[in-house]
Design a protein around this nucleic acid. Structure first.
Lengths: 221, 221
DNA sequence: GCAAAAGTGTTGTTTGTACACCCATGT
DNA sequence: ACATGGGTGTACAAACAACACTTTTGC
């Protein structure tokens, strides 16, 4: 318990980013390995302190760029955690969390021995540092909900894609199978995608039509 | 611009609460009058600094109790604002915003000459301090969306109420008129309310049946 | 008996879900 | 010719929206 005579310093402001990507029909999140004293040896979400003269959104974008090399992707503030247990043990911290959606083909993970950044399936996560498991759960709930009424999936796919690829992204995130015909009808009637004109020949089967998102920026549909 | 030699102190953590209530078919928000140097004379949302050893949720509940005397009402974190312009002009602040839903009959506003706390219609707000107009807009959007798929309205009504009273709350928040029959059917079939048994005799017309919320705690319906 | 708010049903439209077969290609 | 994934239509169910008259009371 704090005493009256020695007021605690004000909490630090940290920014934490849940970076999602879809790799081979499975939803993954980027984790780094902690070597600091507190929670050493645990996997954790990437994060860091807010810098001088930096807005929260810019700090989140900077962390994302540092870890993955990507920018201009979907990035949204999630929730701010202010549990007393947060921080390095001595100094308390308030953590403003964000989530981001990236194409894993565009990501170049830093190869720093100490951090070991890497993708982990959200459905098979280990016990993470702090309350990071809860943060991922929260991010996943938000992502699932946004997927239903926005075009956020644009940030997980290249400019052109097939309907099957789009459906695989939805299925990976929602963790359930969907009907091909209903999915196609819904995507087209909501106007989130439109035919791109080309085809993709891939393997011993009928070529697939290519589609693009009508907007590659956040939009409610 | 900050120099290299004199690092700015870390931002302070403030908590701001958008307190909504419905008064006579109109949605109101609680504002206080600023007398501090920065934005002196403007109306603003109630808020204050996070205290030592206090979680964000507790700080928000404390502010709510200080301003209104109520507790155990619906209170949800909204968004965290980290614009550089926030703060008292010298010291930067990060503002974690919350919104609360109260019955105005239960509120006892502090009568402090300097603050002049009072209810203002959200549809006729003046220009507020900082970006507080944007905060109220954001809170209103969130409230409207929650109203559609949760039972949050419980926090705006007494234990027993008539269907017309409930409908007036919905109409004040959504700012549109609704059909009596469809509204009644929906509320009952979703199971958010149930008949309380009694009636209310009020004026020269048929008495109204009383209802209660099946749960007076947050629930998704 | 009249004014005022409470209460009540039906119909059409839209949205969502379930479901099975043919098509174009490479080998 | 066959294996592979791409592409298409229909029928039922559920949810939602529009709409008007009768009931109970106080005065």
């Amino acid at each position: 318990m704090a005493t009256h005579s020695i007021p605690a310093p004000p909490p630090l402001t940290a920014v934490v980013v849940v970076i999602f990507t879809v790799v081979e029909d499975d939803l993954h999140v980027l984790l780094v390995h902690r070597s600091e004293a507190h929670y050493a040896g645990y996997w954790a979400l990437p994060g860091g302190l807010l810098a001088d003269g930096e807005t929260l959104d810019r700090a989140a974008a900077r962390k994302l760029l540092d870890e993955t090399g990507v920018h201009d992707v979907y990035l949204e503030q999630l929730y701010t955690f202010g549990e007393l247990s947060r921080g390095d043990g001595a100094q308390r911290a308030v953590a403003v969390t964000y989530f981001a959606l990236v194409q894993h083909e565009q990501v170049r993970l830093a190869v720093r021995t100490s951090w070991q950044p890497g993708w982990h399936s959200v459905y098979k996560l280990p016990e993470l540092a702090f309350d990071n498991n809860a943060v991922v759960d929260y991010a996943l709930r938000r992502l699932r909900s946004k997927l239903e009424y926005t075009n956020v999936a644009y940030s997980l796919l290249p400019r052109q894609f097939t309907l099957s690829e789009l459906q695989q992204v939805y299925e990976a995130i929602l963790d359930r199978e969907m009907d091909k015909r209903n999915f196609r009808r819904r995507m087209l009637s909501l106007g989130v995608i439109k035919p791109a004109g080309g085809q993709r020949m891939a393997g011993a089967h009928r070529p697939a039509q290519l589609y693009t998102f009508t907007k590659r920026e956040p939009a409610v549909v």
